[in-house]
Simulated assay, not measured.
Amino acid sequence: MDRIARRHGARAARSHGTVETEHGATPQTTGHTGHTGSPLRAPGRAGMAGMAGRIPAKVALPIITALAFGLFTIFRTHTDGTKGGPAMLYGLAAFVVSGALGLVVAHFQSSMLTETRAIAYGVVFGGSLGWCYSLGGEAILKSCAFGFTMGAVMFVVSLYVFRTHRVREPHGEHRPHKTHGSDRRHSLPVATH
Rank of each mutant, 00 (worst) to 15 (best):
M1C: 04
D2W: 10
R3D: 14
A5C: 12
R6C: 12
G9P: 02
A13C: 15
A13S: 14
S15Y: 01
H16W: 03
E20R: 10
T21M: 13
T21C: 06
A25Y: 08
T26M: 05
Q28I: 13
Q28V: 13
T29N: 11
T30I: 03
T30M: 11
G31A: 15
H32R: 15
T33I: 12
T36I: 00
T36M: 07
G37A: 07
S38G: 12
L40C: 11
L40F: 05
L40H: 13
R45A: 09
A52L: 13
G53K: 12
P56S: 06
A57K: 08
V59Y: 06
V59P: 06
A60K: 00
I63L: 15
T65Q: 14
L67I: 03
L67D: 04
L67W: 08
A68W: 06
F69D: 15
T73V: 02
I74W: 09
F75V: 11
T77D: 04
D80H: 06
T82Y: 13
G84C: 07
G85M: 14
G85N: 11
M88K: 07
L89A: 14
L92C: 05
A93I: 01
A94Q: 13
L103W: 07
V104S: 12
V104W: 04
H107Y: 07
Q109E: 14
S110I: 00
E115M: 04
T116M: 08
A118L: 08
Y121E: 09
Y121M: 10
G126E: 02
L129W: 11
L129C: 12
W131D: 00
A139W: 05
I140P: 06
C144N: 07
F146P: 13
F146I: 05
F148P: 11
G151E: 05
A152E: 04
V153T: 09
V153E: 06
M154D: 08
M154F: 08
V156E: 00
V157H: 05
S158N: 06
L159W: 15
L159F: 15
L159Q: 06
R163P: 00
T164V: 03
H165G: 14
V167M: 11
E169M: 13
P170L: 10
G172T: 01
R175H: 10
K178W: 11
K178A: 10
T179A: 14
T179F: 15
H180C: 00
H180K: 14
G181N: 06
S182L: 07
R184S: 11
R185L: 11
R185F: 09
L188V: 09
P189R: 11
A191W: 01
H193C: 10
H193A: 10
